[in-house]
């Protein structure tokens, strides 16, 4: 796919040139670091439990996942359509899919970097003489990255559908909330088919049930890949639809 990597590189450079990426990284790392210490204290020194909390067991993780990807992706298409740069990209010899995938990859790489701070905690703990469960840590990280990919795809999708970054961020956050809270709401229903349907979109359960336990189950990878591909596809179509407006 020509231009994919060029656009990813450009997006990452654009992210780190601006203050937003650094601010998000700073807040996330500070919060996660402080919380990790807190988790260690409350778990009575159980390192693996604390790491699990950091990468998915706590509500802070999901709050970050709901908020950070939309903030990252909100500008990627909507602002470019307003400044006209999208016109430049869509008349460059790269396909629309490459443009969207390039931006998507950049968002995922950034979020992967953000979650990889968990490895720092692992290193810090192991330097103190307690070996963490590296497999579970890597699995939790991969799960976090896959969740981020899904939410980035949702964010890009929202960004492709509007010309205002704030609207894009808001729309994506709402959609993310629906994704995350659907199982909670389904729990209120006693209809089994509702629960079964919602279980198909239960991101939290898919993350906790496999990756966080250190199990790499392809069906769980496929769950994330399918939903992510769906939203990327919708985003590509939304970019194409801009031409017809």
């Amino acid at each position: 796919m020509r231009g994919w990597i060029a656009i990813t590189r450009r997006e990452l450079a654009g992210l780190f040139v601006g203050p937003l990426a650094w601010a998000l990284l700073f807040i996330a790392v500070l919060l996660q670091g402080w919380l990790f210490v807190l988790y260690l204290k409350t778990s009575g020194g159980d390192v693996d439990l604390a790491l699990r909390w950091t990468l998915g067991e706590s509500w802070v993780f999901w709050a970050l996942l709901i908020l950070v990807p939309p903030l990252l992706t909100m500008r990627m298409i909507s602002e470019e359509s307003r400044t006209g740069i999208l016109e430049f990209l869509l008349t460059a010899p790269v396909s629309d899919a490459a443009v969207v995938l390039g931006k998507f990859t950049a968002a995922v790489v950034f979020l992967g970097l953000l979650w990889s701070t968990a490895f720092l905690y692992g290193l810090a703990v192991s330097s103190l003489g307690i070996a963490p469960d590296w497999g579970a840590l890597a699995g939790g990280w991969l799960g976090a990255v896959l969740c981020s990919a899904l939410f980035s795809a949702i964010g890009l999708c929202a960004s492709a559908m509007t010309s205002t970054p704030i609207v894009a961020a808001f729309g994506a956050i709402v959609l993310n909330l629906v994704f995350v809270t659907a199982p909670l709401l389904a729990g209120l229903s006693d209809q089994t088919w509702v629960r079964a349907a919602v279980a198909r979109v239960d991101v939290i359960d898919h993350h906790k049930g496999s990756f966080l336990a250190g199990v790499l189950d392809t069906s769980y990878v496929a769950f994330f890949a399918a939903w992510t591909a769906f939203f990327v596809f919708v985003a590509v179509r939304a970019v194409e639809a801009r031409r017809w407006r």
Partner: peptide, 14 residues
């Protein structure tokens, strides 16, 4: 094609 739209779209931060 080399195309220069009226708005001269360039990334300002680069």
């Amino acid at each position: 094609i080399g195309y220069l739209p009226e708005s001269v779209p360039l990334y300002r931060e680069h």
